[in-house]
Nucleic acid binder design. Structure first.
Length: 856
RNA sequence: GCCCAAGUGGCGGAAUGGUAGACGCAGGGGAUUCAAAAUCCCCCGAUGGUAACAUCGUGUGAGUUCGAGUCUCACCUUGGGCACCA
């Protein structure tokens, strides 16, 4: 009997699939379509287990849907622009493009052996000029429709390298290369008007029934609709009054000061003619631009000396402070602070010795605020102190509503709806991205490039020499040859825009491009109409907010510009977010490297001695940190290529699906991979044995039942993304077959079903078994088996009997036995009689087919 | 700091509010073998008990329910995101 050797089987069937061309997506009017998409990879250089897990899940769905009769689109491409390519060019010389395309080639070579049912004819990389040229065309369309504009925005500025830094390049508030403390600086940048769609993007979340609740909540919070009051504080010096927005107008009598952002026009004006203010503001601008950096930074303030009148009492003057925690991007960039009911305001007031005044107290525990702000949920009833709108006991919600009405009636404020969502800043001062296709003309201003001149390609030289990426700054900025162009409007000499687009732009519409990757317009209407939407999108939870929100916005913008049909405004019908593949980290517990950084060891370099993990070579103790995200810097990456070489692709696929629920992280373990390999061998051996049996009938009933149960359970498992559960059922089915005493005919049928049920997960082995047992054609093209409902029902059931909710006995009864009859049987049980001790039960609950609970 | 999750045996995990621990790993015992590898069979939450069985048990503490791993609240721990990483 031959043994299971993946190395022979896998290439053979891959060739068979390619020759049959079964993965090439075809528009077929006679079949329903199904579009499966996994978030496309960044070409970092090697595939990792996370990729294997992601693409295997998509492949299971794609193959399953194909078997169910759908015309499937399952494409793959490369999210190919981005910083790592530029960093590589900076570190090793060469060009980011060369690095990127080499990586794509390597990674594709590593992915092909996985046997994924991908239509490679649709492959593209976002750095292909054919792709980003269409993106530029859309940018121009968006400009025409007012979806793009320019304004000032804050960036991380490295004062030594004189360059803009990504958040990732800011480490502990300092530039990653220069080590200099980072400053915040304003630049004129390009923005997409995503905020125009805040309400729609929020409301439409309700329709996304097949998205994880978690993702919808995160997006809803991110968009952040709030109802509040906008009003202005009149200045005592007669200057322009200060407009503020607040979600808690009901606490207006607790106002302590008016705070403005360091970027507020008033701050800027003061900064310009007062060096002291300028110095203070410079201090506040230190540190990164991330919300986290701003929120956790020490509260800094500066009293401008400006005073404003309280809207409810013209004799009450409030000071105006510049405060570093106020964002210019949200609301009006100015607030009134109510320290009693906001921790941030309270911290600030305690630091600068500003008054703290309670406006309401807890009903349970009415005591004044000390150093902890009283911030109850808005639905909690509180006791108001002398409220201007006449409130006594009311919830925050009621109070806000009453106050807004009060202010509107008195005509000093307006109730407004605001969103937290900011416009999408897409400008990047970097080379390796899609050039923004506009031209700066002295006469005409900012003019879009003519569409016939697209793509605006990235230059590959500067002044005739290869670009030197080791010089800090944007290589496009210092490339006069490339910048020089003719104004598309007046024809006079002009300059190209040197900003490139955020890579999120590239990934915001690739799903649409896959429907017609060769089109000379961004999409082809007929293809998009057929293939959109993505029926199942699969990717990491880390993309829950930005990528998915930007894509939802882009789909709407593309629809407006005629690039996508109306139905595609929500482009992803169903979303699944999978967990990461993790692996233990082995951290040296005895020493660090010369820079004081932790040393990590490869799994193969450590071993267990006397119950402790040590480094094999040196015997140094090792701290084991379980379940950490695989990361090169931590030396805990398991290379799928090694696993495929050792065990085959089917084993790798089986393992990444088997151990953990798909949405949770999976810990890579060597023993888990071996177990998967063992199981597949066992299935193969069983199939080989059954193939040699004759076609006699026998005691077939149990096996046939088991077969239908397996069909039912595995189908349910795949449909519900319970791949691990589906695999557990396949283990059980394998045990049932190998123990079966049924005749050859039934065993062969069971094994063919096994091949079909396994084929989405282990397609190569399944083909082998299918052909071994005389299955017709390719199992990849066979129709998915259907479970016979009649074979699923058991005739009798075992009912557990609980006494006061604890299981104490069980009875076996016919499936459809009458409730009263069941109760009688249950009460006749010894354990029940003992527990009742002659008394009548207080209550008997019979859940048919489930359980009996006797309350004594 | 803010937003969102997750926590079940030695380990990964299963469980429409209804028998907690399916399935797998590790471990133990046995069969086969000259021996081993491979394979096959059995056991395997904790405590007590020869056993039947009893008691306890799903991060912690309360609550709802005839019944809670599952629902509610609070807390603890871990993970993801926080707008220029992709």
């Amino acid at each position: 009997m031959s043994r299971y050797t993946a190395a022979d089987i896998e290439p053979k069937w891959q060739t068979a699939w390619d020759e049959a061309g079964i993965f090439t997506a075809q528009r077929d009017p006679n079949r329903p379509k199904y579009y499966v998409l996994e978030m496309f990879p960044y070409p970092s250089g090697r595939i990792h287990m996370g990729h294997v897990r992601n693409y295997t899940m998509g492949d299971v769905i794609a193959r399953y849907k194909s078997s169910c009769g759908f015309s499937v689109l399952h494409p793959m491409g490369w999210d190919a622009f981005g910083m790592p390519a530029e960093n590589a060019a900076m570190a090793q010389g060469g060009h980011p493009g060369t690095w990127t395309y080499d990586n794509i080639k390597t990674m594709k070579g590593q992915m092909r052996p996985l046997g994924l049912s991908i239509d490679w004819s649709r492959e593209f990389a976002t750095c292909d000029p054919e792709y980003y040229g269409q993106q530029q065309a859309m940018f121009i369309d968006f400009m025409e429709r007012g979806l793009v504009y320019r304004k000032n925005a804050t960036v991380n500025w490295d004062p030594v390298d004189m360059t803009v830094l990504a958040n990732e390049q800011v480490i502990d508030g300092c530039g990653w290369r220069s080590g200099a403390p980072v400053e915040r600086r304003d630049l004129t940048q390009w923005f997409f008007k995503i905020s125009d769609y805040s309400g729609e993007l929020l409301d439409a979340l309700d329709g996304l029934d097949n998205w994880p609740e978690k993702v919808r909540t995160m997006q809803a919070n991110w968009i952040g609709r709030s109802q509040g009051l906008q009003f202005s504080f009149e200045r005592t010096d007669g200057g322009e009054s200060i407009e503020v927005y607040t979600t808690r107008p009901d606490t207006l009598l607790g106002a302590s000061f008016v705070g403005i952002s360091p970027d507020h026009p008033i701050s800027k004006a003061l900064e310009a003619d007062n060096p002291e203010v300028a110095a203070k503001i410079a201090e506040m601008r230190k540190g990164g631009t991330t919300e986290e950096a701003i929120e956790t930074a020490e509260k800094l303030g500066y009293d401008t000396g400006i005073r404003v009148k309280h809207p409810l009492d013209p004799n009450w003057e409030l000071p105006v402070w510049i405060a570093n925690f106020i964002l210019m991007d949200y609301g009006t960039g100015a607030i009134f602070a109510c320290p009693a009911h906001d921790q941030r305001d309270l911290d600030f007031c305690r630091k600068y010795d500003l008054p703290v005044k309670d406006t309401f107290l807890s009903l349970d525990d009415p005591k004044p605020v000390e150093n902890e702000a009283f911030v109850p949920p808005k639905t909690e009833k509180v006791k108001w102190l002398d409220h201007f709108a006449g409130l006594d006991e009311a919830t925050g919600e009621e109070a806000v509503e009453a106050t807004v009405k009060f202010a509107e009636d008195a005509d000093w404020g307006t109730g407004v709806e605001k969103f937290r969502l900011r416009d999408w800043g897409l400008s990047r001062q970097r080379y390796w991205g899609c050039p923004i296709p506009v031209v700066h003309c002295d006469d005409c201003g900012v003019v879009p490039e003519k569409k016939e001149n697209l793509p605006v390609k990235l230059p590959f030289d500067e002044g005739g020499n290869p670009i030197d990426f080791s010089i800090p700054g944007n290589p496009l900025d210092r490339n006069p040859d490339w910048r020089a162009c003719d104004c598309p409007s007046c024809g006079k000499p002009a300059q190209r825009e040197t900003d490139t687009m955020d890579t999120f732009v590239d990934s915001s519409w690739y799903y649409a491009r896959f429907t017609s990757p060769g089109a000379t317009t961004p999409t082809d209407a007929e293809e998009a109409a057929y293939w959109m939407n993505v029926d199942q999108y699969i990717g990491g939870i880390e993309h829950a907010i930005l990528h998915l929100l930007y894509s939802r916005f882009f789909a709407r913008a593309m629809n407006i510009c005629g690039h996508l049909p109306e139905k595609a405004r929500e482009p992803f019908n169903a979303l699944f977010t999978q967990g990461m593949v993790t692996h233990a980290i082995y951290k040296n517990a005895e020493r660090t490297d010369e820079n004081g950084r932790a040393i990590y060891h490869y799994p193969e370099d450590v071993e267990e001695r006397d119950g402790v993990m040590v480094v094999k070579e040196t015997g140094e103790k090792v701290k084991v940190i379980p379940s950490a995200k695989m990361s090169k810097s931590k030396n805990n990456v398991v290379d799928p290529v090694n696993i495929i070489d050792a065990f085959g692709a089917d084993t790798a696929r089986w393992f990444v699906l088997s151990d953990s629920p798909p949405e949770r992280d999976v810990e890579w373990t060597a023993s888990g991979a071996e177990a998967a390999a063992k199981h597949l061998s066992r299935v193969y051996a069983t199939a080989a044995k059954i193939a040699e049996m004759d076609d006699a009938d026998g005691n077939d009933e149990d096996l046939i039942r088991a077969t239908h149960k397996a069909i039912h359970d595995v189908t349910m498992g795949i449909e519900s993304f319970g791949f691990n559960a589906a695999i557990a059922k396949l283990y059980a089915f394998q045990n049932a077959i190998s123990k079966s005493k049924a005749g050859g005919k039934a065993q062969k049928e069971a094994m063919r079903v096994m091949a079909q049920l396994m084929s989405p997960m282990t397609p190569h082995l399944s083909e082998e078994i299918w052909s071994m047992l005389g299955g017709a054609g390719l199992v990849a093209q066979a129709d998915w088996p259907k479970a016979d409902e009649a074979m699923l029902a058991e005739d009798s059931v075992t009912l557990p009997i609980q006494i006061n909710g604890k299981r104490r006995a069980e009875i076996s009864v016919p499936k459809d036995m009458d409730k009263a009859e069941v109760e009688k049987l249950a009460l006749a049980e010894d354990a029940v009689i003992r527990a009742l001790d002659g008394k009548a039960p207080k209550k008997v609950i019979v859940v048919p087919g489930r359980i009996v609970n006797v309350v004594v």
